[in-house]
Write a protein that binds this DNA or RNA. Structure first.
Lengths: 151, 151
DNA sequence: TTCTAAATGCGAAAACTTCTCATTCCGTTC
DNA sequence: GAACGGAATGAGAAGTTTTCGCATTTAGAA
């Protein structure tokens, strides 16, 4: 009964919220756009308005249940928080996303914020590259759509 | 004569492109949205269509003259490339942006990409926090608009 | 100066996200 | 378990940011 999860997060356990949370938990994809959640629920016969999806995901974010990411795509993707923090490495060819944690980087970030006089609240680290599969398939991968990003 | 810069980048030296490049070079702000460039040029009497701004900035990006960033704001900001790579620390209160370079983090990133089998093409690291000025002014900073971001 | 491909401007439109407000639902009270 | 009140939802309108289409203009070569 995950309505408890919602209550604990300070949210009323409504049907749409339960459906969305359940979907995020059961989906094999970790990173979903609002649109993707919408379509997936539609197909599953659970119709939830797109505006509601956006509202709920934003609430989930405020409640700490999910994290919103801005990869290089122009729209937000959401990820269920499972406790452990991690960063992402994203394939610029096919969109595949892998995760990693690096204590040394974490530590350096805190130090840098401190040196600059900032009170660090958060951070985002994305590495972009070509994933192992796409490197084999030199002739350009499935979801061709890559743009650089650095500095 | 920066038309040479454009030629060198493989771009025809048109008036709009020259104006935009000149503006980016002379602006004290390093990170500008398309809209901001548009308005600034307007005020300076150099009218350039917004669509052109977007087109030109995208071309500049492809040519390696500028870098496009997606901070936590929902729109892109562009930064003139001055050679040296760096990452950013962004104030979630007032929007201030500071820059830093950390060799250790750079090195770890390459190592991680390698371990994961990726061919690294790029990366983006943003630290979010509250800048020294906003920490003093506890009662909420100027451009209040903050959202977390992590994982 | 003339010519041609490329670039621009403008408005329309697409993509993503938020807002408005009437209707419905949750959860508490009786 | 029916009634109530405030919160949540749905649907569409509207807001933002960005791209597109096409007629017109421009850069640069002849």
């Amino acid at each position: 009964m995950e309505s408890q999860d919602l209550k604990r997060a300070g949210l009323k356990a409504t049907l749409p919220r339960l459906k969305i949370l359940k979907f995020l938990e059961e989906s094999k994809q970790r990173h979903m756009s609002a649109e993707e959640v919408y379509k997936a629920l539609l197909e599953a016969g659970d119709e939830v308005g797109l505006a509601t999806i956006y509202r709920v995901l934003t609430q989930f974010e405020s409640a700490g249940l999910v994290t919103r990411h801005h990869f290089d795509e122009g729209h937000s993707v959401f990820e269920l928080n499972l406790g452990e923090h991690h960063d992402h490495i994203v394939c610029v060819r096919c969109g595949r996303v892998d995760e990693f944690v690096d204590e040394i980087i974490e530590e350096r970030q805190h130090r840098i914020a401190e040196e600059k006089g900032y009170e660090m609240t958060d951070h985002a680290l994305y590495i972009y590259g070509i994933c192992p599969d796409c490197r084999k398939t030199q002739g350009r991968g499935p979801r061709t759509q890559g743009r650089g990003k650095a500095n």
